[in-house]
Design a protein around this nucleic acid. Structure first.
Lengths: 336, 336
DNA sequence: CTGGATCATCGAACCGATTCGTCAACGATA
DNA sequence: TATCGTTGACGAATCGGTTCGATGATCCAG
């Protein structure tokens, strides 16, 4: 069931079959009809590998996700889902590669095997060896996040610094003087994970601008860690009346810790931050937070990648998103 | 930077380079050394498409996931992650295809494009057109779940019927007489989603065996629906003292509804069911539930698929998992 | 009636690997 | 020295498509 078989049954040459399918040259209506009938009858589809080999492109994009050993955040999950969906709409296939910062085999296969036309790279660090590797290989890619030298690469990112600063200002407006940041895990931050660093920078800047006192804590991405982290904050800094966080997965734990401490939100304690809508709405009361637009990011990343593939020499494009903070019920005036 | 380039620089023929890499024929140590040096210097990797074309296999598996429009459950996410990980360990790439029950283009590409050696098919329905399509195309595949005629296909599944029956017996043992089932969404059940049907069957059987009274409700996969569903149960059947569920995503909503109704778990009301450990542990008190072994399922599905690809004519293998119910704090004696 | 343009089709080269058949060189054996 | 077996390398065919150049048929204008 290859193109030769079709050609034989239709009594034409292989090239005619190819032209009948692609339309790149005219084929008489009669033979076209005959060829399509045979194709229909045999349920023939061109071999994608052969086509990719000759055409030099695969109509496939690579999606490099964090290693599966670490559970994906909901935001990342939304992002993956939207990338896959956007790619499907553009008739692109998606090849998944679970890779951390190291050069593992899966990542190397994707980069060097000419299996993909381009790559979307998730969870980029400030210094990321994978970026250099992709640039060296000359493979078009779009980063979700940016390195410390972001100008010469394509990326889509959320402006965590600005968002966190906004959160701090919001808390300051409500009269809070002592606040805490619940960041992502210490390992991630130590590895140079951009959002972690930029959120801290924004937090620090906001605190300074408003003359507040701020403390920051790293916290692993799960409920238990969130609970432990907030307990630690309450113990070590009982003066703190509000926390801001970019750690979605810690939110349930934060909630538990506050309940256990007998603190009610928002009368005794305020909580805000950056989270996927799903988490913000599951918090009780619903979280005042910037909703990370993961779904939009995925679609835009695919669009950008398509442009980058079409013209790799074009100037790098960037997209820095600053979603508004949705006021819900989890922040209120500082207690006194 | 193809194999010809390497051959030229090393002063040998292309076939010699190929044999030096594959080891399928002997190559003298001297030339091998020379070839590998050139490869190293030029950072050459064989073109995966050309290799796949010639060899007739792609070293890639397809993973057909539910469409992204519907948020994946945590269990599904764990499953995807473990499949991707297991595949990476076996040096297989994973091609993602978001497909519902219909034949969409993405699914058709995966099935007919010869881009994958085999497929893992998630969220199988009792009558699933995709299964027939794969069988017709002769593409090896492993189902996560089974159709109503499961004997002639390979699959891995969780015995939801047995698990739900166990839950019912557990509740009966605690003295509950009126219980409710919170199932997955009405659309999913109507579409013939296996776990939904089998859970209901197990629930009904358990209720009958113990002479209880049981009501069952469908519930969309989110917090709001879970809350609404439990409110409805409390309103329409105030005699109910316990619910069992296979709807993880409804658990937070169930919790909210119980809190709002002033019912405390487990003294006033019991909750149990089947959920990924993550959800079970986030419930308060922690959920007495069967932990769906999603991580194990993923790894086993990849193993099975590898066997199925190696020998497609072999007898179909099945794996029906019945994880034990972990007793945590969310079930207790019926109130009186 | 002839020359040139247009249309439809064919044949062959090519993409980048793998693999089979062949063969030269060499050493060992008779 | 003639023969045989082994080793190491080469050349060509092949996988299944796409695409370029060429060719024959048809048509219209001059």
């Amino acid at each position: 069931m290859n193109i030769g078989e079709i050609a034989r049954r239709a009594g034409v040459s292989r090239s005619t079959v190819s032209y009948a399918l692609s339309g790149k040259r005219t084929v008489s209506e009669a033979t076209r009809r005959r060829i399509l009938d045979v194709i229909e009858e045999l349920d023939y589809r061109p071999n994608a590998n052969a086509r990719a080999l000759k055409e030099g492109r695969t109509r496939t994009i690579g999606l490099v996700i964090p290693p599966a050993s670490r559970r994906l955040t909901d935001m990342q999950l939304d992002f993956v889902a939207s990338v896959v969906d956007a790619a499907a709409r553009a008739d692109l296939d998606v090849l998944l590669s679970p890779s951390g910062g190291d050069h593992d085999r899966s990542f190397e296969r994707v980069v060097t095997g000419r299996r993909v036309d381009g790559v979307i790279l998730m969870e980029i660090r400030l210094e990321d060896a994978r970026v250099a590797r992709l640039q060296q290989a000359g493979l078009p890619f779009v980063g979700i996040g940016r390195t410390s030298r972001p100008d010469d690469m394509w990326w889509v990112d959320v402006d965590y610094a600005a968002l966190m600063a906004k959160c701090v200002h919001h808390l300051a407006d409500l009269g809070h003087r002592d606040i805490a940041l619940v960041n992502r895990s210490a390992e991630l931050v130590a590895a140079g994970y951009g959002p972690g660093h930029r959120a801290l920078a924004g937090f620090t800047q906001g605190v300074r601008e408003r003359g507040l006192t701020g403390v920051d804590y790293c916290c692993a991405d799960d409920t238990a860690a969130g609970e432990a982290c907030l307990n630690q904050i309450l113990r070590e800094h009982p003066e703190v009346t509000a926390v801001a966080t970019i750690n979605e997965a810690a939110l349930p734990g934060i909630q538990h810790a506050l309940e256990n401490a007998g603190l009610s939100v928002p009368t005794d304690f305020s909580v805000t931050g950056v989270a996927a809508p799903h988490w913000a709405e599951n918090f009780r009361p619903q979280l005042t937070a910037a909703d990370v637009p993961a779904l939009e990011m995925g679609a835009r990343a695919v669009e950008l990648l398509a442009e980058c593939i079409a013209d790799p020499s074009a100037a790098a494009q960037h997209l820095l998103l600053t979603p508004p903070i949705s006021l819900r019920g989890s922040t209120g005036p500082a207690r006194r």
